[in-house]
Write a protein that binds this DNA or RNA. Structure first.
Length: 265
DNA sequence: ATGCCGGGTCCTACCCGA
C-alpha cells in the first residue's frame, strides 16, 4: 500500500492550529506524501473530537495528548506499516505532558517527540518562568536520551537568533526573542542536538510562522519558531530538510508551515 | 497596534492566541 521508493524515514512536523480546521490540508498531505511519521502541534481538540478513526482509515495510527488549555494539544501519526513502541515518558514536567505539550513514542528504533512550548509572558497561559522551566526539562530529557536516535519536533516558541525573524516582526522584548528563552534553546544545541534546518541552511531568512494579522504573510514578516532537533545518531542519518512555505499561501492555511525531514534508513 | 485574523465554544458573541 505504501508508495515509498526507499526505506528512508520521511517525517513532517506541523503546528496545524486546529486539526479540524486543517483537516482538508492534512488529508491531502497524508494522501500525497504518505510520510512515515507526522508530528502535530496545537491540535486544539479533546480526545473525543480527535479524528483517530479517520486517520486509521487513511493508514495512520495516532497518539494524541489533548491540551487542557486553548493552544495546546500534540499528536504523533505513524504509518501503519511501522511498529510503535510506547515508552514511559521520562520528561520530568508531568504537567506539560498532562496539558498536551509533549508526546513521544518510538518507531523503527528512533524516538520521536512532538512538543509545543507555550509562548510565555505576553501571550499564552504559561508564565515566562513556566516556559523556561519546561525548556530546561526538555534539555535534561535530551541529555538522558543523547545516546539514542532521537527527533524532537515542534513549536518551541523561540526565535534562536536575529536571523530567525523579519526585521520588526517582533518587539525586541518579546518572549520569543528574550535572551532567557534563547539561552534555554541554545543549551539544547550545546548539549549536542542538531538544529536540522540550520544544518542544511546555515544562514538566511528561513521562516516557519507568519501571523494572520497585519498582512504579515504578504510582507514576509515571518519568524522561525518551529524546529527539528536531532540527537547525534539521528543527525548522522540526515538526508534533507524542507520548509513547506507554499502551504502558508494555501486557502485555509495554518499560520505555521510544515517542516519535512528525511533520515537515511 | 496586544488583537488588524482565525480558531475555539458557553453557537453568532465572546475568549484566546505567537
Amino acid at each position: 500500500m505504501t508508495m515509498t521508493e526507499t526505506d528512508n524515514m520521511r517525517m513532517v512536523s506541523w503546528n496545524v492550529n486546529g486539526i479540524r480546521a486543517r483537516w482538508p490540508r492534512l488529508m491531502e498531505l497524508l494522501t500525497c506524501e504518505q510520510p512515515d511519521v507526522v508530528c502535530l502541534q496545537e491540535t486544539r481538540c479533546s480526545e473525543w473530537h480527535f479524528p483517530s478513526e479517520r486517520l486509521r482509515e487513511m493508514g495512520y495510527r495516532s497518539r494524541h495528548s489533548p491540551g487542557s488549555q486553548q493552544g495546546g494539544g500534540v499528536a504523533i501519526l505513524v504509518r501503519e506499516d511501522h511498529p510503535i513502541t510506547e515508552r514511559s515518558v521520562e520528561l520530568d514536567h508531568q504537567r506539560d505532558i498532562a496539558e498536551g505539550h509533549w508526546i513521544e513514542l518510538t518507531t523503527e528504533g528512533i524516538t520521536i517527540v512532538s512538543v509545543y512550548v507555550p509562548a510565555g509572558a505576553g501571550a499564552g497561559e504559561l508564565s515566562d518562568a513556566g516556559k523556561l522551566a519546561f525548556l530546561e526539562a526538555v534539555a535534561r530529557h535530551a541529555c538522558n536520551e543523547h545516546s539514542r536516535p532521537l527527533l524532537i519536533a515542534g513549536d518551541f516558541n523561540v526565535c534562536p537568533t536575529d536571523e530567525d525573524l523579519a526585521p520588526g516582526a517582533l518587539s525586541p522584548t518579546d518572549a520569543l526573542v528574550r535572551p532567557e528563552s534563547r539561552g534555554r534553546f541554545h543549551r539544547l544545541l550545546w548539549d549536542g542536538l542538531t538544529d536540522a534546518v540550520r544544518a542544511v541552511h546555515p544562514h538566511g531568512a528561513v521562516y516557519t510562522f507568519w501571523d494572520y494579522q497585519a498582512g504579515a504573510w504578504q510582507k514576509n514578516n515571518g519568524i522561525r519558531i518551529d524546529h527539528l532537533l536531532l540527537s547525534p545518531q539521528a543527525a548522522d542519518r540526515l538526508i534533507s530538510v524542507e520548509i513547506d512555505k507554499a502551504m502558508r499561501g494555501r486557502d485555509k492555511a495554518s499560520d505555521h508551515t510544515p517542516i519535512r525531514v528525511e533520515l537515511a534508513a
